[in-house]
């Protein structure tokens, strides 16, 4: 199995690892860096549980090779809070009870942050449409939509 050296900045820290060439970014994060907050919920790029930011863009890390992110700056759910200070989107998810089992949550939060970065005042319809690549089986989305609305507002401040 050919291996390859991959270097990137993850949550502000630079890392270099020798990994099998076929290693997916999600497996690089979870298995090689121990960042297990990014989840795998499917094998067809549908669920968004694996969403991370690559150079500020929201990307499904199950659908990118680690090697493709070589040289990039990656932010995962673990990189959002500043110490004990929650990111406004994280705080909004807690405040609005936007999670139950929590499995979809990291991907939802990363997606919510990306939306807020693109559009500072998204409407309910815009939020629902933006979430087309994220599944949640627990919440019926109702509270996730509210949380993203609130989180986006808080990020404007």
């Amino acid at each position: 199995m050919s291996s390859t050296s991959v270097s990137m900045t993850v949550n502000g820290k630079s890392v270099t690892k020798e990994v099998p060439a076929r290693t997916l970014l999600v497996s690089f994060l979870r298995d090689h860096l121990g960042l297990t907050g990014t989840h795998v919920g499917c094998d067809t790029s549908q669920c968004g549980a694996c969403n991370v930011h690559i150079d500020g863009k929201c990307v499904k890390s199950c659908t990118v090779l680690a090697a493709q992110a070589d040289g990039a700056s990656v932010t995962t759910i673990e990189g959002l809070a500043k110490g004990d200070q929650l990111h406004p989107m994280q705080a909004a998810f807690k405040e609005h009870h936007a999670l139950q089992c929590g499995f979809c949550t990291p991907g939802m939060i990363m997606t919510g942050v990306a939306l807020a970065n693109e559009k500072s005042n998204p409407s309910e319809t815009e939020i629902r449409e933006y979430l087309e690549g994220n599944f949640c089986r627990c919440t019926g989305y109702h509270n996730i939509v509210k949380a993203i609305e609130t989180g986006a507002k808080a990020m404007r401040r």
Partner: peptide, 16 residues
Amino acid sequence: VRRVEDNRFITGRGTY
């Protein structure tokens, strides 16, 4: 009451 368990889930520190 806001959920105690959320703190670990929203920061990616759940243990599945």
